[in-house]
C-alpha cells in the first residue's frame, strides 16, 4: 500500500489522501499514521480517495475510526451528534470518502460506517462538499 497526499482549496485547505493498494492489518498502521502526521501538522479537513483501494478489512475500518475521532469537531456535543445519528442526518463534517471501490463500499456498509461518513463519487465532489 502507498499513500500520496495532495492539497485542495475550497477555500479552506483540505488534505486529500490517495490510498493505493489494500488496507489490511499489515498496512493499516501506515494509513493511520500518515493521517495522524497530517493532523499533527494542522490538517482539520480530509478526503480519503479510495478509488485505488481494491480491498479493506476491519483493520482499515479501525484506522478510519481513529482518523474520524482525531478530526472530530470539539464544539459538537455528544447529544447533538446522537440526535443527528437517530435522525440519520449526522455525517462527519471533517472526514469524507471519495470513490470507494465496490468491495470497500461493501465493507463500509456491513460495518455501518457509511451512516457516519459522506461517500462521494469522486475527489472533486468530495472537496466541493466542505
Amino acid at each position: 500500500m502507498e499513500i500520496t497526499i495532495t492539497q485542495a482549496a475550497n477555500p479552506k485547505m483540505i488534505a486529500v489522501l490517495h490510498v493505493h493498494g489494500n488496507v489490511d492489518s499489515a498496512s493499516y498502521e501506515q494509513f493511520q499514521q500518515t493521517a495522524a502526521d497530517l493532523i499533527a501538522k494542522g490538517a482539520r479537513d480530509m478526503v480519503l480517495d479510495l478509488g485505488q483501494t481494491p480491498y479493506m478489512s476491519s483493520a482499515g475500518l479501525r484506522a478510519l475510526n481513529v482518523i474520524y475521532n482525531s478530526l472530530r469537531d470539539e464544539n459538537a456535543t455528544r447529544s447533538n451528534v446522537s440526535a443527528g445519528v437517530v435522525k440519520g442526518t449526522y455525517k462527519s463534517p471533517h472526514l469524507k470518502l471519495a470513490a470507494p471501490t465496490k468491495r470497500v463500499l461493501e465493507t463500509l456498509k456491513m460495518s455501518g460506517f457509511d451512516m457516519f461518513l459522506e461517500i462521494h463519487h469522486d475527489v472533486p465532489s468530495a472537496v466541493a462538499s466542505f
Binding site: L61, S111, F113
Partner: peptide, 10 residues
C-alpha cells in the same frame, strides 16, 4: 456513533 465505538471488534 463512531466516536463511541471501541477500536476493533469487527
Amino acid at each position: 456513533p463512531l466516536e463511541q465505538r471501541p477500536e476493533g471488534g469487527l
